[in-house]
Design a protein around this nucleic acid. Sequence first.
DNA 1: ACGCAAACTTGCGTGCACGCAAGTTTGCGG
DNA 2: CCGCAAACTTGCGTGCACGCAAGTTTGCGT
Lengths: 215, 215
Amino acid sequence: MRERPDLRERKKQATQEALREAALRLALERGTANVRVGDIAEAAGVSPRTYNNYFSSREQAIVAAVTAHREARIAKAMADQPTGTRLADAVAEAIVRGYTDPGEDDHAALLLIATDPALRHAFLDATAGIEPPLIAALAQRLGRAEHYVAQVLAASVTAAVRIALERWLRPADPAPAALLVPTGSLPDLLRGALEPLAPALNAAEASRGNSARYT
Amino acid sequence: MRERPDLRERKKQATQEALREAALRLALERGTANVRVGDIAEAAGVSPRTYNNYFSSREQAIVAAVTAHREARIAKAMADQPTGTRLADAVAEAIVRGYTDPGEDDHAALLLIATDPALRHAFLDATAGIEPPLIAALAQRLGRAEHYVAQVLAASVTAAVRIALERWLRPADPAPAALLVPTGSLPDLLRGALEPLAPALNAAEASRGNSARYT
DNA sequence: ACGCAAACTTGCGTGCACGCAAGTTTGCGG
DNA sequence: CCGCAAACTTGCGTGCACGCAAGTTTGCGT
């Protein structure tokens, strides 16, 4: 019993998802403040203690319902980039795709997150999750020798994304007239945030030394 | 009673420092695990509740004893850079100075932090504190119009620093022979982490005032 | 010098995160 | 088909973070 051939794994993922969705559903029904961790656990059919084996805060579970597949999507989008693409473009494209969820926009959830400070924070923290796939993708493009560089660049990209999301979620300061939804153009914000990093990404790619080409 | 002319302020800072130092001292004397928040509060002469008005976790206080003046040092170091310096160099220099504490190395504390996972995490999180001063400094160099760019670059630099610190604190994987102290060359690690960002920083500086796009 | 409002402290109550040490399930080896 | 060890769940206990609603301090305006 050493591998992960996916049977136990399946059940785990199911539980995780059950918790996520229960958390979000309850948070939407009653306010965020009126959801106890026990409620979520109960709704998902596990003990409160088990809840904390999956999520280490109430907010994390709620946010995870929205964040769920982002990392995987970004990883895939990076892999899908045509080999000729300039690194900076590849990254920007992959990020935008990762944050452009096909079919699952869930405006209500986003409004909720944008509204509640604790949720906003948790949502932004979840951004860190995209770093590992980015490291992997960059390390591959730049070569194993440049692992440190890949790490730094991945961290920078992640940071830039965070800035974009922060701005995206920023509640309207001046006119409190409308209940402003986080509807700015996310893709534009993301591309704008990544643009300043383009020189760094492309420079790293250019100096990809003398190691033999892949393919 | 609207300003902050420094008298009440002084007392606040004193309390903060008392807490910080008490926290570190106790953590060093007994292990981290044997320090309750109440002990720290008592040692600093305030109520436990007040402790939490200053720090939102036990680890934060301990780490703060080491982190304390970093942000201010970096801000000053940035301001001190000769106006002719290339942005990337200015930033690298300022960061290195900020993390090179004159006279206060406190090996014991660093060992403690490097050892305990929770403390390590808190220490790395504290890195985020250097972002605001960096934003300010970069915004000044790049011009107010490029505030978004300044934010992104500051966040990237912060992320790079974090990577460097992570590596610095990484416990020795292969040979568990010696109790490895976090003694790598921090300055070198920092410069190495910042190098990949140099093209981005210099490019931003070069294009100061040209492109009128800030999505 | 006095008073008062803002700023800060404190006790209390609630919900929570998480280590630990049982129990229970899972699925591979024989 | 059986047994067993790793993986996962659960209850319990402890310390903790933080909102709230008093108290207490501070220092400006007059």
